[in-house]
Design a protein around this nucleic acid. Sequence first.
RNA 1: GUGUGAUUGGUGAAGUGGUUAACACGCCGGAUUGUGGCUCCGGUAUGCAAGGGUUCGAUCCCCUUAUCGCACCCCA
Length: 439
Amino acid sequence: MINKPKGTYDLYGKDAKVFLYLEDVIKTLMDSYNYEYIKTPVFEQSNLFHRGVGPSSDIIRKETYDFIDRGDRNMTLRPEGTASIVRSYIENKFYANNISPQKFWYIDKMYRYERPQKGRLREFFQFGCEAFDSDSPMLDAEIISIPVSLLERLGITNIKVRINSLGDEQTRKSYKEALVNYLNEKIDDLCSDCKDRFTKNPLRILDCKIDKDSPIIKNAPKITDYLTDSSKEHFDEVLEYLNDLEINYEVDPYIIRGLDYYTDTVFEIEATINDESMIICGGGRYDKLVEDLEGPQTKAIGFAVGIERIMSIIDTLKLDEDIPKNELDTFVVPLTKQANHFALSLNQALRLVGLSSELDYKQRSIKSCFKQAELLNAKFIILIGEDEIKNDYVTIKNLSTKEEKQLKNHEILEYLFEQLDSDEEHCCSCHNKDHKHEN
RNA sequence: GUGUGAUUGGUGAAGUGGUUAACACGCCGGAUUGUGGCUCCGGUAUGCAAGGGUUCGAUCCCCUUAUCGCACCCCA
């Protein structure tokens, strides 16, 4: 048997319904925020991600899906959304648009070569936004408010927004110096990973899980104390605007983020479900990235949300009960082979007028047809047998009221519409099976 | 990339180095020869992830591979 590739999954059944529902909620949300939908290719020239995401990030160093195409071009399946959208922004000259800032949203598959585990896959969906051409702190607050509103709409309440500022280039330069100086004598007391980080990327030592409670890290210099005046002002304003939007947050000077392009504002949203915490959203400013990719100087900010992580929360919290289940208006049953012709046409006619209808393809016994109809959640079953064909009528039964009628061909639609309408008016979509519907 | 646990019908699973792989649900059929949700009866894996090895004999022991789970690294 051929298995699916490691770290991938088939989306079907109940999960597929949840996914479509999520997409719907997101689309409505993004319309209200006036963001434009964008879809970029699944693969791009490898260079884009090397230069965009940054060669020192783990994502680029060990997690990309790279391949050489038949024209000897180096290609990479996108590991994240931002670089592609920046590329598109530059290539399509969105910056020349009179409407500004230009704001985009996407929900797409991303690829990272990782060892799968809970909430991490090799192929996964991210929902994200990117907003270009403004360094207004109001935009920072808006961007953070999007995933917060989304989670609110979904009913996911136990969340924490953590925010930090990485400042500008000068901030990071002076901070790095201070941090290295501070850690220089103490590095021997930290874990082996941290020793490694010390030479490669000392900032990462701050969010080490092993040493996170160590006094060495707790007393380490904080980047927020090294912000330049303009970065500090920006950060303070972002926090003020978050207050205006009544978004609870926590300033966490240890948030560093794994992508190299971030500047100033960075943030994460963590959800805690049954004592387990999971980062479900991450984002920040990238005021230099557009230039780095040879576009005009353009400030920008964005975020990404892990769709599978959201779906697993929806699942564990059972927030999917309001999502409508599959329903069928009619189930058409030919009881003999001779009845197939009429049943097939009738089924088609019902579909063409907008009803959802299904046919018994398997010439089942009448008993199992009723069972099928029940499994399919059908409202009506339409039986066509020997006698019906001979005398030119159908037997139609309302499966919840058990009322049965014999109708001529031309009466079927009228009857169904009448019944379905009154169903909507009178029925409280009751789950009470004994409930009798008024006519 | 490292460590660790797992993989048995449509599903949940029990189990054993030796001829029929438990049990439950589901499904199909019948009792009721054209009417569902209850009941009763019957049927339902030539197979125990794939390949190789040890053995007289392997679903069970060993090796390899694949996939899944969990943790680390890192991240959404």
